[in-house]
Write a protein that binds this DNA or RNA. Structure first.
Lengths: 132, 132
DNA sequence: ATGATATTGATAATTCATTATCAACAAGTA
DNA sequence: TACTTGTTGATAATGAATTATCAATATCAT
């Protein structure tokens, strides 16, 4: 006793499962939609609590996307990568690689600590559906 | 009569002036801060009304920044460029240049139509204030 | 200058995401 | 099994940005 214990619950299990099986960044509401299919009584408050915990313990990281007012989350164990945002279906895909020459763009006197890059276009699925 | 007329007001003039003189994307509150120095009674509602008008007539464009829940605005007549977001003061600066090799990152079957890049770090002002 | 009306400013209302509350529930231990 | 207490779910509360309201004001054609 004396030690704070963390209990294993089906809710937290399903929330983690949602991230493990969906290979794109998810927002709180999306997590509720996905995990809620297996746990119909799951509440949004529990999702927020779980996400905050998972971020705190380093299992999730926040994903900031331009134009998305609320941030999404994804597994932390992915390496540095960027995202491809499909203009048609709105889904966000992980992409590997990283552009070079960023430090050349930094103004004098500024220090570069990080960067975000989002590619826009059509994903392969939408490319077939509505070729242009 | 019959024609809708748009009147020239000092408020709208000062709001446009804020964008013309500040070479970085501005949010509504920032516009109020800047234009409000010359028009102390300027209200935030007027700023929102003016911004919405200017976007509608194509004089401003929205700037979507990752992690910024609220979007900012800048002159539409700037060419393609990116932004530097100061982690300390939160200001956003324009930067020239554009990284190459983006098309190499695009997955097979995907088509690239555009991209957003945001650099993060410390601006020159914050660099001096809190060097690290 | 006058009048019609577009515009403003103060603020109430709205919207939405997130957090707090708290009684009911359930995981884990003895 | 029974008990302790961490966890949940429904919802109220909060916070922040944006929009609506409306009387007062200012612009512009006449």
């Amino acid at each position: 006793m004396g030690t704070v214990m963390e209990r294993q619950t089906s809710q937290r299990h399903e929330i983690r499962r949602a991230f493990e099986r969906t290979h794109r960044p998810l927002g709180a509401q999306e997590v509720l939609d996905i995990a809620g299919k297996r746990l119909p009584k799951l509440g949004i408050a529990t999702v927020y609590r779980a996400i905050n915990q998972l971020v705190e313990e380093g299992w999730l990281v926040t994903v900031k996307l331009p134009g998305e007012p609320t941030c999404k989350y994804e597994l932390a164990n992915k390496g540095h990568h960027h995202h491809f945002h499909c203009n048609d279906c709105g889904k966000v895909y992980d992409v590997d690689g990283c552009p070079g020459g960023l430090s050349d763009m930094v103004p004098d006197g500024f220090s570069l600590q990080g960067h975000d890059l989002v590619l826009y276009g059509q994903c392969d699925t939408c490319e077939k559906t509505a070729p242009r």
